[in-house]
Design a binder for these strands. Structure first.
Lengths: 232, 232
DNA sequence: CGTTTCGGATGACAGTTGTTCACTGACTTC
DNA sequence: GAAGTCAGTGAACAACTGTCATCCGAAACG
């Protein structure tokens, strides 16, 4: 009954875009499949707010979704598989954000304020995702660790490319620029993780953390500006 | 039989130091207890190299030690209890190291080199402990997370106190100094975690990481030196 | 010496887990 | 409209988990 209702809903939208991207196996079947796949991901993420991926049970997830344990295998080979999928979901949308921030041409103080503000907002909007990333970055599941590391390296690549175009990078070798980019990325992760430790509605605590984050970025920024000065 | 052999061995050493420190309940009994307690900690740490604390089973640990599952409760109320004990064991000895490094009076470049070298050596010598800290810092067990956070805050306190005595800190407010100290501590943790990702015998990789760590510290150090410069 | 203390062993308890299997029935394709 | 695909089911499997009441025997104590 319920499934029927959903299938009709999905058939309509499938009719709307019949011959768009995927040629064969189009329509209701795949839509329903991706729907329960997404339900598994959502339930997993929710359960992971208070435990580690390595202690999250397969049955626990399927029970939360309301499907049989065996159904899990139609979507992921492992719990590690669900983990890597969650990494993509958590960090995938950040590439565009980073590119946008790096493309802005403002003064140093302005870009620091904006970076911290965007980080705070992103954490506020995707709390469980960020918590998952922080928790599993050095967690017990190798595949997930590697997926996160690859994603963060991608971020560092983009930041390094952005830094290279700035006039303030004159005199920096590519290797040094890469280290600076990684420092910025690690600082962003560190700040995001710190935001997780205060309640989402504790505006005073959040502002305190944001202030500290801006201060740290300013120190790094000043160090970058005086990098070529004669050393004492 | 095996227990008998051990008890005789311990009786001898207990006779050697009969009336030393603890007045009552002295000797063999406590020594044996602390011995298996340590065995539990060691086995736990070894098993935690490839998994998370929240997925580590009580029976798994006792099996590795060779004692019955019920014996675990004589030493820890929980697996979380074993976790907090491991935090103390991992980070306790670092306070002295940090104090020693902060007390040294060398030039900025020298202190950076030494800090990175000491970090690398400490990681090399206590690999499983550091891995445990990195893994559980944002892990799924609240008590352990809090224990780690408390220990790291203690480090930041000591670094802040050390920075306050340096002439380079003129013009810094206590709050700003505290942020700087936390930045140094976080950077140390970040560097230590990075060391874990390369093989212990990969000297080239280790030197590459150490080089990057020195570079990052130099950026921060320069930023600190020019903190009071008029901003452009 | 006898008595008490207590670290550890034993065995059982009720749950839970991951994985596999044949299967059903709605969607897809010809 | 018949044939095929395939997401999801239900049951069963062996293995495992944390916790408990109970007992044992060596160390500690008077």
């Amino acid at each position: 009954m319920f499934t029927d209702f959903l299938s009709v809903r999905w058939r309509k939208s499938a009719n709307g875009c019949l011959l768009n991207d995927m040629s064969h196996t189009p329509g209701v079947r795949q839509a329903q499949k991706q729907q329960t796949r997404q339900a598994l991901l959502d339930a997993g993420l929710r359960l992971l707010e208070h435990q580690n991926l390595s202690s999250l049970g397969l049955r626990e997830v399927t029970r939360a979704v309301g499907v049989s344990p065996a159904a899990f295998y139609r979507h992921f080979p492992d719990m590690a598989g669900l983990g890597v999928a969650l990494v993509g979901e958590s960090l995938g949308s950040l590439h565009a954000v980073i590119r946008a921030v790096m493309a802005e041409t403002t003064d140093s103080a302005g870009i620091i304020d904006r970076t911290v503000a965007i980080t705070a907002e992103y954490v506020a909007r995707h709390r469980p995702h960020i918590r998952f990333i922080a928790r599993e970055r050095y967690g017990g599941v190798q595949a997930v660790r590697e997926a996160i590391a690859a994603e963060l390296q991608g971020f560092a690549d983009e930041v390094a490319a952005g830094l290279a175009t700035q006039p303030a990078s004159k005199g920096w070798s590519p290797g040094e620029l890469r280290v600076l980019a990684e420092l910025y990325v690690d600082h962003m992760v560190m700040t995001a993780a710190a935001f997780l430790d205060v309640a989402p509605d504790d505006t005073a605590g959040l502002e305190h953390l944001a202030h500290a984050a801006r201060l740290r970025m300013r120190i790094i920024s000043i160090g970058r500006a005086h990098w070529l000065d004669p050393q004492p």
